[in-house]
Write a protein that binds this DNA or RNA. Structure first.
Lengths: 190, 190
DNA sequence: ACGGTGATGAGACCAAGTCCCATCACAGGG
DNA sequence: CCCTGTGATGGGACTTGGTCTCATCACCGT
């Protein structure tokens, strides 16, 4: 096995997605993923805490982008403007080049409960990032929690529409639409 | 080992909570839980799909109660009234007798990421129950999704306050308060 | 008393994940 | 040019979660 080839982590992630798509998540062992990447099982677990994580590497970047974007907003910004800015800041993850990869990855996740469970954990972490950034702006407990959930919902909705087969529009535009629609729905709930 | 003693499932659940509280979730093996209940490891997994599930048995009843309560509402009910009815219907799970047990259980869950992850899965299932019941009432996609999240948030908030050490109030009352507070927060977001 | 049913015990087995140690590639200093 | 330190890797032992199969036993109706 040729050691010392670069990008071990990336090779593992890409081998994993390939194998999951072919044989399913449960039908693939960590040792097989490592082998396809030309690495050993122990090396796999040195790069990823567990077998699920290989599909979720880099998720934290989105949460950090959320928080950074909100911190960059003027103090006068309304909750809605903060959310707009946060969601827009995640656009780096949803360029056209990435779409095919993201679609394939999502199909694998949707197909397996264990992976959907991990996705929920990641989503919760994104929502928590929104919530704590909103509280830093002085929002009250409940309003921060609610606004964070609305932001999370808009993010999910925009994501779902972005990866839909029929879609040709950009993520940023979809996110703005989703958020506006949810805000008016919120008004009707009060 | 005395076979055929009744309530194997309950004995397993209670042994599990005891051991988790003593040694932590990760410090406890499934075989140890079974042994304390006077059963074998294979019997444990016959009753619970995995080690985490032993703490979440019966959660689905709450989701079913949500849906049933909404179906029992008059057709004229507003989304807010539907949510009130749903949350109120979950009160059976939060009587005073159960409080000590619930508090102990929650401490164990909060202490372990794996368990928190499973909790998110259960929470998502409750939210989905709310959402699908709301859509049956004719609510649009986004409004149903948003209202379900608000209901879930109110449920979580009421639960957190109910198990707080200083609390002496009942779950139903707390749930109503949380929902009203969130509804007015929602109005301010639109 | 007898056979059927259903819950259990026991143990083999696989894969996830941890751990430890040897090994190798590369870097820099003598 | 050699020597040594550093860091990523390979390899394998080990524990545990989880599955599966088969034998066993308690109870129930006939």
């Amino acid at each position: 096995m040729a050691r010392w080839e670069p990008n071990a982590r990336e090779r593992l992630a890409s081998s994993a997605l390939d194998l999951f798509a072919e044989r399913g998540y449960e039908g693939t062992t960590a040792a097989e993923i490592a082998a396809r990447a030309g690495l050993a099982k122990s090396t796999f677990f040195r790069h990823f805490a567990d077998k699920r994580e290989v599909l979720f590497a880099g998720q934290d970047l989105i949460g950090e982008a959320f928080a950074a974007a909100m911190r960059a907003c003027p103090p006068s910004a309304t909750p809605r403007e903060l959310l707009h800015a946060a969601l827009a800041a995640a656009a780096f993850a949803f360029g056209d080049e990435r779409r095919a990869w993201v679609v394939r990855r999502q199909a694998v996740i949707d197909d397996n409960t264990e992976l959907r469970e991990r996705e929920l954990l990641k989503r919760a972490s994104l929502t928590a990032a929104l919530e704590s950034a909103l509280r830093e702006r002085g929002l009250g407990e409940r309003l921060a929690a609610l606004a964070a959930e609305v932001g999370s919902l808009a993010f999910r909705g925009a994501f779902a529409r972005w990866i839909a087969p029929s879609n040709a529009r950009g993520y940023a535009e979809l996110a703005r639409e989703e958020l506006d629609a949810l805000a008016s729905a919120a008004a009707s709930l009060g």
